[in-house]
Nucleic acid binder design. Sequence first.
DNA 1: TAACACTATGTAATAATATAACATTTATAA
DNA 2: TTATAAATGTTATATTATTACATAGTGTTA
Lengths: 135, 135
Amino acid sequence: MGISKIDKMQNLSKNQQIIFDLIDKSSEPLKAYTILFNVQKKGIKAPLQVYRALDKLVEIGKIHKIESRNAFIACHNSSCQVAKATAFSICEICEKVTEISSAGLSKYLANFKDKDGMKYSKYNLEFFGLCKKCR
Amino acid sequence: MGISKIDKMQNLSKNQQIIFDLIDKSSEPLKAYTILFNVQKKGIKAPLQVYRALDKLVEIGKIHKIESRNAFIACHNSSCQVAKATAFSICEICEKVTEISSAGLSKYLANFKDKDGMKYSKYNLEFFGLCKKCR
DNA sequence: TAACACTATGTAATAATATAACATTTATAA
DNA sequence: TTATAAATGTTATATTATTACATAGTGTTA
Ligand SMILES: [Zn+2]
Ligand SMILES: [Zn+2]
Ligand SMILES: [Zn+2]
Ligand SMILES: [Zn+2]
């Protein structure tokens, strides 16, 4: 049994919850200043308030940063703890981003050994291509 | 037979060559403004001159961007054409970055199919952990 | 050569992304 | 309650990257 959505929901502070809700209901990755603009009516006025909430949400695995886009999406692997082992597909035309949840892939990467025999439990993988719609 | 170092060397413009040389001889990934600072004595004075050269060097595969660090390293896979299929290990303490060159890994990722059966020839993978020295 | 297309360069201004520093408040728990 | 950690508020600033426009070089071909 994984961590339920309810479990993951609690413990968020006010700003964290406001910002998570915005990201979670978004159909696309959101950038920090887009988030800032959209939560100003809720009293979050400064970049730092956004970045602090984002840092925390990333840390606890509720959102992920898409490094190549400087944008954030909610984690929809509600039943996994892969906050530190992430994989995404990114459409180079419409910029749609999808989190990849593949047991085979995560197993392969978690067990991958480099030339020194070193394993890595933490990684981020971004695939690029065209999504179904754009192909 | 792959592309030789000589082949890769030619065709660079003046600014591209200056900036590539700096990155290539660096023992660590370099950030754009660090590069700018270091090439000002050679007449490259503006950020845009640096970013344009970086864009081109990335495009032709002579350097790679480490997305999670906003920094650039020279490609040392001189005999491969994987400009668009990159993997790195990053030490979370000393920030040492190493390009991973594993036929097994690149084969696995190039053949990976997502839920829709989609394959991706382009990807970027960043592993995080501790390097030999820092372990 | 001349005309053309293409690539690269120079320069200034500005946009976008992210953090430092410091004061205060709120939540948690011994 | 007292102590501790976590979160917030605010201002200023640092870092990373692009827009816009003008100019110069390079190679191709009419
Ligand atoms: Zn996730
Ligand atoms: Zn698309
Ligand atoms: Zn490479
Ligand atoms: Zn290290």
